[in-house]
Design a protein around this nucleic acid. Structure first.
Lengths: 196, 196, 196, 196
DNA sequence: GAGTAACCGAGACGGTACGTCCCGTCTTAAA
DNA sequence: TTTAAGACGGGACGTACCGTCTCGGTTACTC
């Protein structure tokens, strides 16, 4: 019989997944602050040790669980029209982040990242950086097509593109609408286009 | 004899302040997560009940304490040059938020706001909204002077001005330099100026 | 204006009585262990200080309250027949002590006396000793009439007469019936009568 | 290898005993009223929960601890002379109960039994009833030998024999001497002997 | 096919902190 | 001056979880 060799065993993988799911369920029910490893273990039907064997802390478990939700990767299309493509993608992102279950979980995760540098680093590495890379790649293509000024710093562009949306998400906590994102995008591109 | 009428008594006000200070000291020493009301009470030389009588939770106490640090209000000058004035103000803001003691405390506060809507609301009301008002006022003056396009939505401008900086602060957690803010500002204004 | 000189004032006396009554009510409702001065003050509509000004401790207040119930003094009749007279009196005593409200309160008071020598002493002085004196007086009369042997130690007789009833009351906590007391009395007198 | 089947494990039994001992030590030092589970836990080097897992309340712990002192069972000899045998036994009982450590602990336990029916019941079952059985057995032997009247109710005899001593112990709290017990015994037997 | 080693559930354990109750003292404002 | 009201520092309550640690009872891999 052939065996998967990267996974120690199906049973082990099973439990890992069951625990992650229990953690997410509980987080949605009672909130991150009242989430306890004790409760996760009980809900998952698992000994506490089995959790501690896999994750060093509540935060680490939670981060892993949230990031394992594995949202449909937020890819950019390339239709040749940057504005349209960015718009398409940001609408998907807004729909993901603005609604349960991912929205509240992601907010809690970013909240916890403010208390724990390890979580912040992991979120950056596993979620933010890939997204940044995708955005930069799409913007580079646009620049190569002359839709964006040569000299515009694309890393800065990412800050200015993501920043206003995260500001709404984390600070003012107003709902983020497609229309709002559209206006941010229009204003942003207005400052990025090549000088005529 | 004239008496202060908002404060029940000097003694009460004294204790409130002592507790706030103890909370801040401890938060800086051990971090928000390991902050305990028990320890704050001990540090302040106060019974636990005296804390619970004033604040309903650790988060509420912490929020109140952080916002009572009363940073030098981040006012905008008005020299007639929007870009220069925004730059002046944002440098002050960056210096405040990028360094102890306010920086780490404010980050922790925003982190906790993600877990507790009441804290988020209070931060918005007591810190974000006034700042937004100040920014909008300065931008209105600029618009009246023809430095910003008539039709530009100033609330959107605030999102786009604050967003990138908070993004660095909370998400990528890279250090925020004056130079970085200057570049955000330049790019932002490029999209806001009136069409020639 | 003329003032009553033994009583500080009617108001003071009123409050003392109100507090005693509140203490008794609460003791019957929740038991001595869960009785608190805080609750007595609230129930009596009185400041805590007003209680502490009158009694030094919960035990002292309770003792005073219980002993103020002022049971119909347990006097012995003297019909010339000791056995009948003791029987009459003990039946009254049993009825008093075996039923609410006095029964449970008195039991709690004797319980507290085991933890606090001051209460034990006060109970003895204010309740036990007078009762002992009454009993001895009646037995002396009986001895003078030749119903009890000259040489019988009457203090011992009191121990032997009260002891079995208190034993039921405090130790086995079986209900004390008139019939049981009658049998104790009969057996006791059998050993006390003069040798023929 | 044979294993003890009533005890979960030696470790568990160890802790139980350590806690009991700490409770007794503290009770003797500060008295039952000032005994706290917190202090017992600290003294025993044990978490509070480890105590609550075993006993539902301070009273229950204390009762168990006191009754585990396991006094040398107060057996009656049988020399054929009831009075002498009762005397022998009561002298031992008096010595046990009249002196530390058992005396004060037992008094406190009986005090607490007045506030808590569960304790009263347990004391009766674990301490009083066995003693009653032993006494009745000895009195039955005496009756069979014609030293006590056939018709005398032996349960009543127990009340009349234990009562006067407990009365001194709990109510008047006078010291109980051998001589006093001897006189009670003499008077008691005077009323119990068969009619000539 | 019988060891044997890893993993598992269960939960006891010492400990920290929770939020509450009550202690006995102290302060205030009204009568 | 006494009172009702209640703030105060403090101690303990009984509970919830922490992260560590035995326990037996399965697997599933090795010899």
């Amino acid at each position: 019989m052939v065996r998967d060799m990267t996974d120690r065993s199906p049973a082990r993988a099973d439990r890992t997944e069951v625990i992650r799911q229990a953690a997410l369920d509980l987080a949605l029910e009672v909130g991150f602050n009242r989430l306890s490893i004790e409760a996760v273990a009980a809900r998952a039907g698992v000994g506490k040790h089995t959790i501690y064997r896999r994750w060093p802390s509540k935060g680490a478990l939670f981060m892993d669980a949230v990031l394992s939700v594995n949202p449909p990767a937020l890819e950019y299309p390339d239709t040749g029209d940057v504005e349209a493509d960015l718009r398409t993608q940001v609408h998907a992102a807004i729909d993901l982040v603005g609604r349960p279950p991912f929205g509240p979980l992601y907010r809690a995760l970013l909240g916890e990242a403010q208390h724990d540098p390890a979580i912040a680093a992991a979120v950056n590495e596993r979620f933010i950086a890939p997204q940044t890379q995708r955005t930069i790649a799409r913007l580079e293509a646009a620049r190569d097509q002359g839709q964006i000024a040569e000299e515009f710093d694309l890393e800065l562009a990412v800050d200015m593109w993501s920043g206003p949306l995260y500001y709404r998400f984390l600070i003012t906590q107003e709902p983020i609408t497609h229309e709002h994102a559209d206006r941010v995008l229009a204003a942003l591109l207005a400052g990025m286009r090549p000088r005529s």
